[in-house]
């Protein structure tokens, strides 16, 4: 398997850069990002076919700025913006579901495996935030030791994960 991103010849992909977030549109139904220790969180409303994906780097906004840029750098800010924008566009909070992947522990340390555990901390922060909003995480692929390409397809509601160690999985 070539460890490269989704090779679509059409232009229906929204690319999500590091710390950013994106939304599906009628024309662009795929959301895609690459994560190592960061987390790709995807929220979607199956009824209205509205989905959002964020590339989250850190658990909590520790700045004095309530609107830090890019918008999805911090989990708490990213989830709030995703929910606000999705609801403005017709999504209902009680219908939302979540899928997430990433949080790899890339560097292995002899006898001290979790010294760089930012991935796990990000995942815990996202789980707490979604639990508060009663949004179920219906599938996840967290941990591992490799970076991954993540693609969410709004039409099938599937998240495809390309991991250099595990190959391709669909959740």
């Amino acid at each position: 398997m070539s460890f490269t991103k989704q090779t679509q010849t059409n232009h229906n992909i929204v690319e999500i850069p590091m710390g950013a977030l994106g939304f599906t549109t009628q024309e662009k139904t795929l959301l895609q990002t690459f994560v190592g220790s960061c987390i790709a969180i995807c929220l979607y409303d199956p009824s209205t076919k509205i989905a959002a994906m964020a590339h989250i780097m850190l658990p909590k906004n520790n700045t004095s700025d309530p609107d830090p840029k890019p918008e999805a750098k911090f989990a708490d800010v990213a989830i709030k913006i995703m929910l606000d924008k999705m609801q403005v566009n017709g999504a209902k909070l009680n219908r939302l579901k979540a899928k997430m992947a990433g949080g790899a522990n890339i560097f292995q340390n002899e006898g001290k495996p979790n010294v760089f555990n930012i991935g796990a901390r990000n995942a815990d922060a996202i789980k707490s935030l979604l639990e508060e909003k009663k949004i179920p995480i219906v599938a996840q692929d967290i941990g591992s030791t490799s970076g991954r390409w993540i693609t969410f397809d709004m039409s099938s509601l599937e998240m495809k994960i390309k991991d250099r160690a595990k190959g391709v999985t669909v959740i």
Binding site: F34, G36, M57, A104, Q108, F116, S146, G147, R164
Partner: peptide, 21 residues
């Protein structure tokens, strides 16, 4: 000095840990 960590991955993936750390 902390204990060194070893990894094999793409450069972009490797960078996320030091950057966030």
């Amino acid at each position: 000095s902390d204990i060194p960590g070893f990894a094999i991955d793409t450069f972009r993936s490797l960078l996320e840990i030091p950057a966030t750390d």
